[in-house]
Amino acid sequence: MGYQLQKGEMQQLFDALSRDYILLGPVKRKGEGMYSDTDVVRYGELKQWKDLEWDVKSHYSFKEAILPITQILFYFIEDEIKEADAEHRKPAVVFMRSCDVHALKRLDEIYLRNRFEDYYYKRLREKVKIVLMGCESSCKSGFCVSMGTNRTEDYDCAVNIRQNGEAAELDSRWVVLDELLGGSDRALGKSAFKSLMLKSVIPDSVTENWVKVAVPKNCGSDLVHGDFWKEYDSRCIACGRCNFVCPTCTCFTMQDIFYQDNGRSGERRRVHASCMVDGYTDVAGGGSYRKSNGQRMRFKVLHKISDFKKQFGYQMCVGCGRCDDICPEYISFSDCVNRIADMEQEV
C-alpha cells in the first residue's frame, strides 16, 4: 500500500514506532571520520527523522546493527554457564539501501543456511524489519548495477524522499505500518496522520554507476596462482579495514575473558575478525596458511567473486564500494576484479 507523508508526519511515525521498536539507520557523527576534522556516517539508533542520513552512503555497513562487533555468547561462573541476553530487547527497524538488503541475504546464507543455524544471529535477525531507502543517484564508488544489487523486493517498507526532503513516499508491506497510517492506532488517534493514499510507490533505484565492473566467469589456475598478486605484498598494509566495512564479511574470532576477582569465572565473546590481518590464519605449531598480504588479497577477492558463488549460486560482493572508500593505501577492489576479467580474456 502506498502513502505520502510530510516531514512532520514522518517524525510522528518515528515516535509511534519507537514505542515498540528500536529504529536503526545511518547517522552522521561529527568529527569521528578517518581523518582529522572529518565526519563519518555509520549505523546507530535513530531518535528523530531528521537524524537519518540520506545524502551520503554510510561509510560502515548495517552489519554492526545485526551482527554486533563484540557479542557476549555466555557467562561461565565456576561450574555453571549462563546464556547472555540478546543485544536488542525490542525488535528493530533497520533503514537500508538496496545493496545492503542484498548483503543481508548473504549474511543469512552464511549464518542460517550454511550447514547449521547460528542461534545468536538468528535471535537478532528474526526481530528485524527492513525499510528500504530509495537511491535517486549513484554513489561515486559503488558498482551495484554491475552486481545486480541496485534493486530489491525484499523489504517491509520502502521510502522515497520527495519535495527536497519535505515529504516522503512509502510503499508498505507491513501490517503494523498500515494500521498506524490507516488511523487505527489508539495511542495517537484516528486524526494523527493525514497521509495521502497512493495507488503504488516504486522504490527509487539507480540504473547506472560511475564505476563499472566486469566479473570474470571462471577464475582458472592461471589467475589463482598469477604473479600479479605479489604486487599487494608491499601495497597492502594488512589493516583489515576493507573487511570491517564490508557488509558481507562474516569472519569472527573467539575470546574468553577471565574476571580478575575469580579466575574461574568470565565470559565468552565473539568479535569481528579479518582475513587480511596478521595472525588470522595462524595454526598450532607455528604454521600459517596465508603469510603474505598478496595471498590474503587473493583469498578475499576470489572468495567474493568466485568461491561463494560456487557454493551458493550468486556473487558474495554486492558492489557497495565501501572497501575502495576506506582503504588508506588506495587499493581498489573494483579495479582488481576488472583486471582479473581482462586477464581472463587474454588467456
Rank of each mutant, 00 (worst) to 15 (best):
L5H: 05
Q6L: 13
G8F: 07
G8C: 02
Q11W: 06
Q11P: 02
Q12P: 03
Q12T: 14
F14L: 01
D15F: 02
R19L: 09
Y21R: 03
I22M: 04
L23K: 02
G25W: 02
P26G: 08
K30F: 07
S36E: 14
V40M: 08
V41T: 10
V41W: 01
W49L: 06
D51M: 08
L52Q: 06
D55N: 09
H59I: 05
Y60M: 11
S61P: 05
L67C: 10
I72A: 13
L73Q: 10
F76P: 04
E80R: 09
E80V: 03
I81A: 03
K82P: 04
H88P: 03
V94F: 00
V94T: 08
F95R: 00
V101L: 12
A103Q: 03
L104T: 03
K105L: 07
R115N: 11
Y119F: 15
K122Y: 12
R123F: 05
L124Y: 06
L124F: 10
V128L: 07
K129T: 11
K129P: 00
I130H: 00
L132Q: 02
E136F: 10
E136K: 13
S141I: 09
G148L: 02
T149W: 00
N150R: 06
E153A: 10
Y155Q: 03
A158S: 09
Q163S: 10
A167R: 10
A168S: 14
L170K: 04
E179P: 01
A187I: 14
L188P: 00
A192N: 04
A192Q: 02
L198N: 00
L198Y: 06
L198S: 01
K199D: 14
K199I: 11
S200W: 04
S200E: 13
P203R: 04
T207Y: 06
T207L: 11
V211Q: 04
A214R: 13
A214Q: 13
V215I: 15
N218R: 15
H225N: 15
W229P: 04
D233P: 05
I237S: 01
A238N: 10
R241E: 13
R241A: 15
V245M: 00
T250R: 05
F252H: 12
M254D: 08
D256G: 06
D261P: 00
D261E: 14
N262M: 11
N262C: 11
R264H: 14
R268M: 09
R268N: 05
R269N: 15
A273W: 01
V277I: 15
D278L: 13
T281S: 14
A284S: 13
G285H: 07
G285P: 06
G286A: 09
S288T: 15
Y289D: 09
R290Q: 07
K291I: 09
R298N: 13
L302P: 05
L302W: 00
K310E: 15
Q315H: 15
M316P: 01
C320W: 03
I326S: 04
I326C: 08
E329K: 15
I331T: 08
F333E: 07
M343V: 12
Q345P: 05
Q345G: 15
V347Y: 08
